[in-house]
Simulated assay, not measured.
Amino acid sequence: MTTRSSSLDSSQPSVSRVLIVDDHEIVRQGYRQILGNDPSLEICGEAATEMEATQKITQLNPDLVVVDISLRNGHGLEICKQIRAWNEQSDASSPSPMKSLVVSAHDDELYAERALHAGASGYLNKGETGERLVEAIHRVLEGKIFLSPKMTERILNRLIAGQQDEYQSPMDTLTDRELAVFELIGKGLTTKEVASDLELSPKTVESYREKIKEKLNLPNANRLVRAAVQYVLEDA
């Protein structure tokens, strides 16, 4: 992995390098327009898949990776986990840890905490404004956590109470991979297509399907598909 550059001239303003990971070109164009207005931020690269993101992260070594959850191939939370692993393997002489911010259209009540557990420093819904995006990026670059006020209150209340969230749904029991499989089933993908999208074997996907049915108390494959389709429609 290349080393992030740092200016020796203190008179020069520092510029943070940002890698954008999203599988929609129109969304990436929006990022370019929004972040292009902030001289302290530079988009150093873009990626549309998990594999491409991994390659770009290794090559470019950005300060921050802004990543969507649902990608054309792969899953955004896996990228956050990779970044966390790279940071843990870095020695004390390396630059400040690479950070990640998840920006997604998915409901933050289901994904925000998953993003933090995966190693991200924040979660922003795509329904927010460009100003809110810039605010989130700067907060994460400063080493802080960024969440919506609603999610911050929810997490703090649970920590203070020292107990599980009383509003936890069966969906919360799914692992990140199981949830990714469930979402793709809801989008109409076959087991073979889900395996290809997430770079898994069909046998592994079948195993995930069985675990999902068990956790959500779904008696058969038809009920699984119906529940997945309903989830995708409601999440959209």
Rank of each mutant, 00 (worst) to 15 (best):
N222W: 04
R28F: 05
D23V: 07
I34Q: 08
I79D: 04
Q59S: 14
I185K: 05
T204W: 00
S90T: 09
I69A: 02
A227D: 00
Y31A: 04
L218R: 02
L71N: 03
F146E: 10
K144Y: 09
S16R: 15
K211A: 11
I34T: 13
K56E: 15
S93R: 07
L19T: 07
A112G: 04
I83R: 01
E210A: 14
S100N: 05
V232Q: 00
Q59N: 11
P62H: 03
N61Q: 11
F182G: 01
N222L: 07
S10C: 09
L141H: 09
S100W: 01
E206P: 00
P219F: 02
Q89N: 11
Q29K: 15
E206G: 02
R226I: 08
D63P: 07
Q89L: 15
L41Y: 07
Q55A: 15
G186C: 05
E88Q: 14
P95R: 04
H138V: 05
S100H: 02
E88C: 05
N73E: 15
V205Y: 00
L124G: 06
V225I: 13
E131T: 13
A112H: 06
T175D: 08
R209L: 03
R72D: 12
E234K: 07
V27C: 04
Y167D: 14
L184A: 12
H117W: 11
S196G: 08
S10M: 10
R84L: 10
S7I: 10
Q163M: 08
S7G: 12
E234L: 06
V18F: 02
H117Y: 10
A105G: 14
L110Y: 10
I145G: 08
A47M: 05
Y208L: 02
I57G: 01
Y167N: 14
I155V: 15
I212A: 00
V140R: 00
M1H: 11
A92R: 11
V134I: 15
R154D: 09
L64G: 05
S121N: 13
E88R: 12
R32T: 04
S100P: 07
L159C: 13
G162S: 10
N73M: 13
E50I: 09
P39L: 10
A105S: 14
L116G: 06
L159A: 14
I26L: 13
G188L: 07
W86P: 02
A195D: 01
V134R: 08
A120P: 03
G119M: 02
R84D: 09
M98S: 05
P219T: 04
V27A: 07
D107V: 08
K81R: 15
I79P: 01
V232W: 00
N73S: 15
R132C: 12
I26Y: 08
S70F: 05
Q89A: 15
E78K: 09
I185L: 14
H106M: 12
G45I: 06
G122V: 09
I185C: 09
Q82H: 13
L216S: 01
L174G: 06
Q12G: 07
N61K: 09
I43S: 06
V140T: 08
G36R: 07
E50G: 05
K99A: 10
H138G: 04
V15W: 06
I57F: 03
M151D: 14
L147I: 11
S96C: 09
I57R: 02
E234T: 06
Q164V: 14
N220P: 01
S90K: 11
T191G: 14
L233I: 03
F182E: 03
